[in-house]
Design a protein around this nucleic acid. Structure first.
Lengths: 104, 104
DNA sequence: TTGACATGCAACCATTTGGTTGCCTATTAT
DNA sequence: ATAATAGGCAACCAAATGGTTGCATGTCAA
């Protein structure tokens, strides 16, 4: 889980995921197009995404195809973000209550 | 949005949010208890969470009370994670289809 | 078979990050 | 008044991060 959060912390990596979301199964060079970065930098980002299991790769001859794996993203939503849903609703009223308490 | 992702990338900071989720409105010293870190390190983490608008503070005499703001977490869920929901469902079948295409 | 293309590996670099220590200031309680 | 308490500020440090360049390897096409 920590690896996933770390992987998502970088805007370049999130944009790579976005691009794979639009078009799945792209090669390294395809993913490099239009980016203000060397191919090697992109390789490193993709390796981090792969380690976090956010991207799966598949060799096809001399090409390496990259596929988005949305499962860890979904898990972050289910296992982590959902926890804070209830808080959202009660946050403001709780804060007000506690403020009043402190000022007694 | 980037600030929020960056803030959430650290396990210590996520655990601080968890603790505020359990008990809202804690002081700095309260939040330091049981942590294997100096107070100053915790201060820095809290400052990052505050910059990302995940935590709101309130001075009360010599105490500084920390309140969880779950809104940015919720926004990550709505604006970012939800985008990948559809992908989740179709990911595997898409991958299979594309594999078949490449092997024609 | 040989050149072009797609990717991999490794060393190196600057900046950011997560942490520390030491000291200072403000508020509260005795 | 003064000691204890809660927190702030700044300098410093090691390690991680995000990037580079240079060269090597594997695969395809002419």
């Amino acid at each position: 889980m920590d690896e996933v959060f770390k992987a998502l912390a970088d805007a370049s990596r999130r944009s790579l995921l976005d691009r794979l979301h639009i078009k799945n199964g792209q090669t390294l060079n395809e993913l490099c197009e239009g980016l203000d970065m060397t191919r090697q930098a992109v390789t490193k980002h993709l390796a981090i995404l792969e380690d976090a299991n956010l991207v799966t790769t598949l060799r096809h001859g001399r090409e390496k195809l990259h596929y988005l794996n949305p499962v860890p993203i979904h898990q972050i939503g289910e296992r982590w973000i959902k926890k804070f849903e209830r808080a959202k609703l009660t946050a403001l009223s709780e804060l007000k209550k506690q403020l009043e308490k402190r000022h007694e």
